[in-house]
Amino acid sequence: MAHISDCRSVELRTVYDHRGSISFVESGRDFEFPVKRVYWTYDVPSRASRAGHAHRKLLQLYIAISGSFDVHLDDGVNQSVIALRHPNEGLLMSPGIWRELRNFSSNACLLVLASEHFDEDDYIREHAAFMQWVQEGRPT
């Protein structure tokens, strides 16, 4: 069973010097899945929320490459909020977790590295349907 503790904050490797900083991740070193899709979300109004869904199989790495936002996690029993505030912080997202993104700063940009190509069938877009899926033992 998926648990919110399966999602974990990660500090991205970063090189600092007088010219600025560079942070980076490598598939197979910093996270275990191959990257098949990359997307980013930006220009989100501060009072808006994004996501509001769960995935059955998809693994993701969230990175706040600019600005900040909160990731609200729900495994069907437990809830938690993880704040992403700096571009050298990431959040590894496990499947089977409901997520909502809130409290976007004016310059927030979320970069997502995903383990699979887009598949609408992998999404659970209604929280009631998510809770039913959890009660059924999270069938694939």
Score class of each variant (00 low, 15 high):
Arg99Cys: 02
Phe31Pro: 00
Arg125Trp: 09
His3Met: 15
Asp122Gln: 12
His55Leu: 05
Ala48Cys: 13
Phe69Ala: 01
Val112Ala: 04
Ile124Phe: 02
Leu73Arg: 02
Val134Ser: 02
Trp40Thr: 04
Glu11Asp: 06
Ile63Cys: 09
Cys7Ser: 12
Ile63Ala: 12
Leu101Phe: 02
Asp122Val: 04
Val71Leu: 03
Gly76Glu: 14
Val134Phe: 06
His55Ile: 04
Lys36Thr: 08
Ser49Arg: 03
Arg19Cys: 14
Ala48Leu: 11
Asp70Pro: 08
Val25Lys: 08
Leu110Tyr: 09
Ser21His: 08
Ser106Lys: 01
Trp40Glu: 03
Asp74Ala: 09
Glu116Arg: 15
Ile63Gln: 04
Leu110Thr: 10
Glu26Thr: 11
Asp74Tyr: 10
Leu61Gly: 01
Val134Thr: 05
Arg13Glu: 11
Phe104Leu: 03
Gly90Leu: 00
Ala2Glu: 14
Ser9Phe: 14
Ala114Glu: 02
Ser68Met: 03
Glu100Lys: 09
Gly67Val: 05
Met93Tyr: 07
Ile97Cys: 06
Gly67Pro: 00
Pro45Ile: 02
His53Asn: 10
Tyr42Ser: 05
Asp121Phe: 15
Arg85Ile: 11
Pro87Val: 10
Trp40Cys: 05
Arg47Val: 14
His72Glu: 06
Ala114Leu: 08
Ala48Arg: 09
Arg13Asn: 07
Gly96Ala: 03
Ile22Asp: 05
Gly76Phe: 07
Phe24Pro: 00
Leu91Cys: 11
Leu59Ala: 15
Gln135Met: 09
Glu32Arg: 07
Asp75Phe: 00
Ser94Asp: 12
